[in-house]
Design a protein around this nucleic acid. Sequence first.
DNA 1: CGGGCCTTTGACTGGTTTCAACTTCTGTGG
DNA 2: CCACAGAAGTTGAAACCAGTCAAAGGCCCG
Lengths: 204, 204
Amino acid sequence: MSHPLNQHIKKFANITEAEFVEILTFFEVLSVNKKEILLEEGQYCRKHFFVLKGCLRLFFMKDTGVEQTTQFAIESWWITDNLAFLEQKNSSFAIQAIEKSEVLAISYEAQEKMLNRFPQMERYFRKVYEKSFAASQLRIKYINDYSREEMYLYFAKVQPAFLQRVPQYMLASYLGFTPEYLSEIKKKHLGKQQKPHRHIEQQS
Amino acid sequence: MSHPLNQHIKKFANITEAEFVEILTFFEVLSVNKKEILLEEGQYCRKHFFVLKGCLRLFFMKDTGVEQTTQFAIESWWITDNLAFLEQKNSSFAIQAIEKSEVLAISYEAQEKMLNRFPQMERYFRKVYEKSFAASQLRIKYINDYSREEMYLYFAKVQPAFLQRVPQYMLASYLGFTPEYLSEIKKKHLGKQQKPHRHIEQQS
DNA sequence: CGGGCCTTTGACTGGTTTCAACTTCTGTGG
DNA sequence: CCACAGAAGTTGAAACCAGTCAAAGGCCCG
């Protein structure tokens, strides 16, 4: 069984085993425990992360003091504060491990060097960002189209695996409402399980 | 003065004048009038649009029968239903001209051919999508962080040019509320003009 | 087995929507 | 170039979805 990043790259670009081995040298491997912080809000955003195993989230602190989660990343997803990474400035998000995780991290400079050395990787990242942008375009559609209750039902249908892995208060804030309201919705739909369903999310 | 697309490409990739001339052959030029539809909801999404002059919007119809605008595009912005374009399937958005506009359109096949012929363009599109995704990550942050009223004030500060070009009912729906409520907010802030302010939006 | 974090419950509140009527703007044909 | 019709914007009243706050219950992990 090949390396998860190699598998992911091969979906979009052609690289040899030898090339992949060299590509890997641009990354470092991080092992993080549950609740460990990979990037703090306000800190310089130096890294782009690829999840090998586990689950991360992107979140920020509202002025009310409540944490607002805006993204999750599981196996084979890329995650960072893209604007801060792109412009190498302070992040307006934090990144935290939800589970014990294994992560690849690449710095902005290393990523640029790697892209210069392996131009095929431009295609890979073009595809990764293209899909990410498409997914977030769709997400903005749903935010505007669905009620809070429909958001939950849609998510539960489409990403049932996440319901197990993610605490409810994070899920609630990701979906745009309060944990109390999520409780209420769940009570209302007890026993009404839905079957999984094809769905586009990020780069997978 | 060089072509707007050439200027835009040169921000991210190196191409010669001769190459640009050949790149242009992959596109067609469209002239559309105000209110003209470039893509209908439910229709096959064949084209990726680059605005030379004018203003387009991306929107869809809610089940209540109300149009929901989710994106605008002015000069030098790319716009399409990215998921539908990517997978060459039916669009869940419509695209319409808000003003009389000049637009470049490229089909999926033509874009693929162009990318194979000019691999430097992979870098250009990688950058375009990277910035688009970063912008929409930030937008999702604001949606969750700001009240409807703050959304309006932020938009008015950061994109004052749009206030002139875009009808209020479209702006209201883009910002996530009703035209009636926008009226109320505006009345409340009469005369309190703010100065423009640097901001990241999409690919510009 | 205990403490703290997460989830649930219920009462109250308020930002925002909805609806309907009215006014103002805009563009098109005579 | 004016008139008028339809579109866009405003106003105010009533209703409601979802948030806030507070307190109790459950559960996980040390």
